[in-house]
Design a protein around this nucleic acid. Structure first.
Lengths: 240, 240
DNA sequence: CCCCCTCTTTGCGCCACCGCAAAGACAACG
DNA sequence: CGTTGTCTTTGCGGTGGCGCAAAGAGGGGG
């Protein structure tokens, strides 16, 4: 996660799901019309409601996608890492960006403009199909989370969010699985549709129970299974 | 909405957003690999978790897409009408259907199997791009609803849902805009992530206020603007 | 025409969650 | 090493929404 070999765009493209199954030559021509961008930690790839002009594939670093409500509330939509694309969906549909992309660490990315992507896809239909598959997968996961939000109560949603984050950004330590991201109570609230207060109370309770260990903008999961029990709402074993 | 000329597949395809901008010849070849299906009211196009084999374009009738939670709760994801596609997203990604599609009236549809669609898209890249645009739009709208669900309270969500339904399936009558669908309190609850009780109470209140007129599985909107005020949470005019 | 089934309404108690407020903890910075 | 700002915790009161239960209201079938 923090070993940073001099990034080789071609290698990362080969790994990137969007270019999966394409031949070397296709990736080469994709690279030729791409340009490289560096975004410093805390800065933005783009802002919500800007016209969507550019599609990115992250080479190095970590970013998150945030949606702002008209009233100014935030929702954290997704975290992304190397190999992930940002803005695929939008660039192809001549819309405005529906969310903002914020760099959490210094980031390096490949960038294509809308015309470039469209051309590539016309030339390599597999690229278009890959794109659809990607979008499909993301759509599905969003649908899943939508259903969660609609039907499940806060406790489960937060537990799930932690497990998901552990999968995406977890690092084993001797104390447990550390979520390797600056992650405030506020952030967790925005991801799960609740408030920082409720998150804080939940985490306190879970810490009491020995499930997690928390610090400032940091969570370590000591007992993943315990969280799963909450996330899946498994019947607690009766100890009478 | 209820005039039913003998359905002409080519004409409907020409209107269908997926085939937008394609030439006659492309639509012809699409038709050649399609077959026709009739689904009776109350029956299902497919069930959640079945392997996704078939993509449909609805020619006639009305259907809805439902997601079931592991615990058996339902969420109504979307209503569809003539010209709409069902299952685009999924067929291309070799997944299982993430939801069930239920016919609300007798339905007539064109059907393609996964291989057929993939072939068509390889042959007509614009088709793939159209597909992406469609999915992108739907993704956006889902994202929008996700944010609604995460940040807005029930009242607004129900008001929004009614307005959305009015747009999709509204018919002017002398009493107001009738939502031309059998629509129970339960359904509305499932669409907005709440319970039939709360929906019932809201509708009662709104009926008192003269905003709507309700009956068994039926809603007529008398004062759309009033609903918009609620949906957008506009400051109520001060009448002191 | 009546019966039965489903949908709807509404009272009621309950609790999960909200959100302010104030105090404590921690990190960064000069 | 203190100051400052951000993040976190927790008490507290308020309430929105849940969900049972029981009584209406239609509608369709026999």
């Amino acid at each position: 996660m923090s070993d940073t070999p001099p990034t080789d765009p071609l290698a990362i493209l080969a790994e990137a799901p969007l270019f999966n199954g394409l031949d070397e030559q296709a990736r080469q021509s994709a690279l030729q019309v791409a340009y490289r961008r560096f975004i410093r930690s805390g800065e933005y790839f783009f802002f919500q409601d800007d016209p969507a002009t550019t599609f990115y594939v992250l080479l190095e670093g970590r970013a998150r996608l945030i949606q702002l409500t008209p009233e100014g509330q935030q929702v954290v939509v997704r975290y992304v890492g190397p190999g992930d694309g940002i803005g695929i969906i939008v660039v192809l549909s001549e819309m405005d960006y529906p969310l903002s992309a914020e760099a959490l660490t210094d980031c390096e990315a490949l960038a294509w403009d809308a015309a470039g992507v469209t051309n590539l896809m016309q030339g390599y239909p597999s690229l278009a199909l890959n794109g659809m598959r990607l979008v499909a997968r993301r759509f599905r996961s969003l649908q899943h989370r939508y259903r969660e939000l609609a039907t499940e109560k806060v406790e489960r949603r937060v537990a799930r969010a932690l497990l998901r984050l552990a999968r995406q950004a977890g690092r084993r330590t001797e104390r447990g699985v550390l979520i390797d991201l600056p992650l405030s109570r506020q952030d967790l609230g925005e991801m799960t549709g609740t408030t920082l207060y409720t998150v804080s109370r939940l985490l306190s309770r879970w810490e009491q129970a020995g499930l997690v260990e928390t610090g400032r903008e940091q969570v370590i999961i000591r007992n993943p299974h315990g969280l799963v029990v909450i996330a899946e709402d498994l019947p607690l074993e009766d100890h009478s």
